[in-house]
């Protein structure tokens, strides 16, 4: 009798192995993100400890890494490029995506709603190089024609393209947030004689505030990280922009364009990785904030 209870059979071993494999898959995301952090920091480490002048790096608008006699690693213009493009993109995409999310969640019904949701998800799946292509071939001549400027690859172009790119994901998340508002709230307000708009403005939007903020933040994160479309549509010239018609260069685009042509281990190489570290920290902070806000929202809802 005892022997039979002690014997470990096939099913027992398979269970153990499956458990182990599933555990590995489960924590792989953590392993990956830690490895990425370590790898990028390691590449940037030499530059940060030897060549980096933090003041120059953050406040000098001159990015001249290839100069033999006097290389300058100032990223202010690149930061301004990324910030201006992202800022304009948010100005465009926040109203559009909030409007779209409100329409889908509060007004659209049946087929319209389903079709819209599918189309928006398809929009989110368009590769960024295609958006960049649209910026180059459609927006560029359009901007030249409409605004009578010599060049159409600029903050305006990249901002519009990036805004359109960020809108679908923001719409989807914002719509989730609105959908999470219980229908009983809408009904109670409706029974008191609230109009559709009053219900949305005074009940639905305030209740979904956390989720909506998170949606916007994730859109901002998307803007900071986007590379290819911005590279193609922004004009890619180092510039402190003073108008939407100035060409700029983004942090991400700088890495993408230059990394292939630098000597491994050179200060230029290290400087690009230091930009990478900076980007990583910014997007990490944005996403973390968004995540904390969403969780905070759940906690609040728990009281009801």
């Amino acid at each position: 009798m005892n022997a039979e209870f002690d014997r470990l059979d096939r099913a027992w071993y398979i269970d153990r192995i499956a458990k182990g494999l599933i555990f590995l898959c489960g924590i792989s995301a953590i392993i990956f993100i830690l490895s990425i952090f370590v790898f990028i920091f390691a590449q940037a480490f030499g530059f940060i400890t030897e060549d980096l002048d933090v003041g120059e790096f953050l406040t000098d608008p001159t990015w001249r890494p290839t100069s033999e006699s006097n290389p300058v690693y100032g990223t202010l213009a690149l930061i301004a490029g990324t910030a201006s493009v992202t800022g304009l993109a948010m100005l465009i995409s926040v109203p559009i995506s909030l409007g779209a999310a409100i329409y889908i969640s509060e007004f659209a019904t049946g087929r319209t709603k389903e079709v819209l949701k599918v189309v928006i998800e398809m929009l989110a799946a368009i590769p960024s190089v295609v958006w960049g292509f649209i910026g180059l071939t459609i927006m560029n001549p359009l901007i030249i024609q409409i605004f009578d400027v010599p060049m159409g690859l600029n903050v305006l172009n990249a901002g519009i393209i990036l805004g359109l790119m960020a809108a679908p994901i923001m719409t989807t998340i914002a719509e989730d947030a609105l959908k999470a508002v219980p229908d009983s709230y809408r009904e109670a307000a409706e029974a008191m004689g609230a109009t559709r708009w009053q219900i949305i403005r005074r009940v639905v939007l305030p209740s979904a505030r956390n989720g909506l903020t998170a949606a916007v933040l994730l859109g901002v994160g998307r803007g900071f990280g986007e590379t290819m479309a911005v590279l193609m549509a922004s004009g890619h010239s180092v510039n402190l922009p003073t108008s939407p018609f100035d060409s700029v260069r983004a942090l991400t685009a700088t890495i993408a364009a230059e990394l292939g042509e630098t000597a491994h281990g050179s200060p230029h190489f290290g400087a690009l990785f230091t930009i990478g570290v900076m980007l990583l920290l910014i997007t990490f902070a944005i996403n973390l904030t968004a995540d904390l806000i969403i969780r905070g929202g759940w906690k609040q809802r728990g009281h009801n």
């Binding site: 009983s184 009904e187 109670a188 307000a189 029974a191 008191m192 009940v203 009801n304």
Partner: peptide
């Protein structure tokens, strides 16, 4: 609707 008040089965405290 403003002239007709409604109380629902489950209390709906607005947030």
């Amino acid at each position: 609707r403003a002239r007709i008040g409604v109380v629902f089965p489950l209390p709906v405290g607005l947030p």
